[in-house]
Design a protein around this nucleic acid. Structure first.
Lengths: 205, 205, 205, 205
DNA sequence: TATGAATGAGATTTCATTCAT
DNA sequence: CATGAATGAAATCTCATTCAT
């Protein structure tokens, strides 16, 4: 939109570094600005406030992530659990996309998922978990309906969503290389899919 | 020692509340003290400093936790993977003990595991994960040695330790009732044990 | 750089007063700032911290002093002790310059030399003494080499450097008027020069 | 006086150490007391306050010093300047006594003369200088009266008193060994006595 | 477009001192 | 004879934020 983005970009770049190093809460606007060769006032002109600066740093990757999540969950709606074995390929494909996305904006994703304490994104992982919850719930319920005497174990449902998200965060913090990451996440996801099918239902009553 | 611990206890109680609400870093000594009807100086008389106050709040539960971890890992050393199915009872028993402990000091454990950012206990969960790592590594290696063409998948080893710890933290934050917690953690642990056996090894080379 | 230095100057002025009255250690930033009609935060914007404020107060006079010391000691290197009587004029000249300097920044010099306990300049007089020591040592050794059976009395060398510095500090604290100071320091320096020649050597062994 | 002096003595001993290390102002009562195995309250029972504790540490050596000063100054009154050469022995004797005294209570004297900033004894050296001033003034005036066209140079009088005191403090801080101190102070005092006679008078008008 | 100046509220910590017991 | 508890005042410093220019 705006044409003269120089200062804005510089600020975003420096903020990225600072947030990554110290986390949002402990990051100092002064320090960010002086590193960008600007004064703190500039932040309030170019952005809304500290949170606004963070937003500028992470918004694009965040949007992409949300979009990807959305389309994945849309697909999920059409999942037929009877055909689960077949669609494991789909899962692999989704995982691939997620990893691609996470690692093509590595710094931003780290900030978003690990360094945003104190900001508006503090609970982003939880919100993602909730999204998964809702998506998987439908699939699980279809699954349960198909098997008499069984119902969805809500706690397991939540927990599976949680560790799925957690799996990617853990990957991000423990493996910097994208290719290696792609290899490492495979058995994790394989395990998650198989265990999900096995543990998502409990005995009725 | 001293009998009249009124102020000390009051301070600990108020600190517990504040830490729980705001987390260690954002907790205000002023606020804690005024709620306890004391001045901030009292903290420095009765404890060392802010960290000392936190320590007083969580030290006993922490010690018990560490002791339990220690004895669990000592047992683990004698685990025979061939008999893994048999000892799932042991795992249940350990899980029981952990849950008992976590829920008999619910607030303190929440502070310790979720609200201690900025304190000396900031990375306690990571340290626990490391302890598990070391313990499980031996078992896993024995397991790998027994099966030609297989070796320990280190990433999965770490991840299993991580989600085991995570499972208890997740439980703590999502289920306040101890009895219900005991029920809910069962399938989680069952899944972890079985998956561990299934995924801990990878093909050699 | 900036033209509107009002607050900065006011702060420096008030700090000068406070440091002079209470000494650096007991000087209160609050008191300085309120007297300047500002908040303590202003100090940390305009200067680095308390020490930075002191630095702003004394840095220019300090630099001049150091420069003068340097050039004096450079001259001293070329001093021929045999011609000491002749160069007493030089000494007078140097003394003049020192006094001029000390009294053209009276307050700052007082702070620097008498009121800087607890700051980075705490031991400035000692450091000046050391500088003199090194300078005079060379002269003294040439002197000693010229007289068989004599060597430099190191203790006296140190002590002379010490009381030379001390003489100026004493002057500063006991005589506010520059002209009178110039008169008063004369016999002191005369005495120091003559005594130096007489007492700087001791019998060998 | 008091019989149970144990705690008192311990407190005094620990205070001595702390004052010596940190100086009076920065010394912490808490630290002193905890080192003495007592609580701060004890100081206020056994002494008046922080200053009272310092007083207890240094009072005896201080008294001895004052007494010695007094008797020296009393002798000085009878000094005949015409016989100055003869009494240089007296000066040596006095110096001996001073050094003996200073070094037989080394720690206390250091505290008194170098580490008492912020206490009631802060300006003790100045007060001693004043005493010397008064004593030497009489001698100097007799001297002046005997020589027409001369009068006492008051500034030099003060300064000589000052550096005489300073000479002992300098000795104390630069030479821990009493015997060596006795040797080192000799030429200093010799110089002071001779210079005093030479510089104490100035031309009338 | 951004600066430079400054605020105001807050943070933790330290200390000598008091006093009931 | 001394403790243990606590005060209250002060200390330095940090920060996000504001706003006239």
């Amino acid at each position: 939109m705006s044409i003269n983005n120089e200062s804005r970009e510089r600020l975003i770049e420096c903020a990225k570094k600072e947030f990554l190093e110290k986390g949002f809460a402990k990051a100092s606007l002064r320090s960010i600005c002086s590193q960008a060769g600007l004064t703190t006032g500039a932040v309030y002109f170019l952005f809304k406030d500290k949170n606004g600066l963070l937003e500028a740093v992470v918004s694009q990757p965040l949007n992409e992530l949300m979009q990807l999540m959305g389309s994945h969950l849309a697909e999920e709606e059409h999942t037929n659990i009877a055909a689960y074995s077949h669609i494991s390929g789909d899962h692999d494909y989704f995982a691939d996309e997620i990893v691609q996305l996470l690692y093509s904006h590595y710094d931003e994703m780290m900030i978003l998922l690990e360094k945003s304490q104190g900001s508006q994104f503090e609970h982003l992982p939880d919100r993602v978990v909730e999204m998964l919850d809702k998506g998987y719930l439908k699939t699980a319920q279809l699954y349960a309906d198909a098997i008499p005497g069984k119902r969805v174990n809500m706690y397991m449902l939540h927990w599976f969503s949680h560790i799925q998200v957690d799996a990617f965060i853990h990957l991000l913090t423990h493996e910097r290389d994208k290719q290696k990451a792609l290899e490492k996440i495979k058995p994790v996801l394989d395990m998650l899919v198989k265990s999900w099918v096995e543990y998502i239902l409990e005995d009725d009553k």
